[in-house]
């Protein structure tokens, strides 16, 4: 599904390398988790994959189902099935949440040469998913993320994911800021989407999310590289001992 090969990325504005050779392959149907100390480059990886400005890829490549992601505009990546749940969802005053969702759904459909969703169909779909995520009607009417609490913003990201039905979902710290119940709701939302044709890359600091969303593979990222990969037990090790042991072992 997603194939990242020896990806090197530096900042456009200054000569600072952030990603120093990331390689990672996520197969369809699988859930991979990335953990790693603050500032190790996890969000940068997610931004570069989704096409944000400000980064320069100096080496390596990233393919989504064999297609070169790095050649595409952000909207083309989305239409091709990539989705990023932002670590910091953006507030857009003046744009209603519903308008935003419908515009996004129809833009992606149009890009794929599919028919637009009728407004009846759309409303029904949004209402059903919103209910599952306990997002009330009032939140849907408000401008995108404006006045939403931290946890509400994260749930809104998952609502978008549920409506857009992407094939490759990257979740950047979707669990941070969530209370225990919201974490369950969000995890249920994610698990409901799990199927053989879809893959997840879940960035998190906490084992707790991985209790709900069981990963197939866990990667540890440090200083712009994947330094270790393993099964779910790797997350438990991090939870217990922090990163010190792993990092020491890797550099040894």
């Amino acid at each position: 599904m997603l194939e990242i090969k020896d990806l090197h990325v530096k900042l456009e504005e200054e000569d600072k390398a952030i990603l120093k050779g990331v390689s990672l392959t996520v197969e369809a149907g699988k859930v991979h988790a990335i953990m790693g100390p603050n500032g190790s480059g996890k969000s940068t990886l997610s931004y570069v994959l989704s096409g944000r400005d400000g980064y320069e890829v100096t080496e390596g490549k990233a393919l989504l189902e064999g297609k070169d992601l790095l050649e595409m505009e952000p909207e083309e990546r989305a239409a091709a099935g990539l989705f990023l749940a932002f670590q910091y969802p953006v507030e857009i005053p003046g744009v209603g949440n519903m308008t935003f969702l419908r515009t996004a759904v129809n833009a992606q459909r149009k890009a794929r040469g599919e028919e637009e969703m009728s407004s009846g169909e759309f409303l029904k779909a949004v209402r059903a998913k919103a209910k599952e995520l306990k997002i009330d009607a009032d939140m849907l009417k408000r401008p995108v993320n404006v006045g939403f609490s931290g946890g509400e913003k994260k749930r809104n990201e998952i609502l978008q994911m549920a409506i857009l039905e992407p094939r490759m979902c990257i979740l950047d710290e979707t669990d941070s800021g969530l209370d225990v119940d919201a974490m369950k709701l969000v995890s249920q939302g994610v698990n409901a989407l799990r199927d053989a044709g879809r893959a997840f890359l879940v960035i998190t600091h906490y084992q707790r999310l991985l209790d709900h969303i069981r990963p197939d593979v866990v990667h540890i990222m440090a200083d712009g590289r994947i330094v270790k990969s393993g099964g779910p037990e790797l997350a438990l090790e991090v939870e217990k001992n922090g990163y010190a042991d792993i990092l020491a072992e890797v550099s040894a």
């Binding site: 989704s50 096409g51 944000r52 400005d53 505009e73 952000p74 909207e75 990546r77 989305a78 239409a79 990023l84 932002f86 969802p89 953006v90 857009i92 005053p93 003046g94 744009v95 308008t99 935003f100 515009t103 996004a104 759904v105 833009a107 992606q108 890009a111 401008p143 978008q160 857009l164």
Partner: peptide, 20 residues
Amino acid sequence: FYLRARGVTEAEATNLLVLA
């Protein structure tokens, strides 16, 4: 970028933001 990352084209995203 947020709008484009959801699949809205740059032109349409710009229009949405202007209307907003």
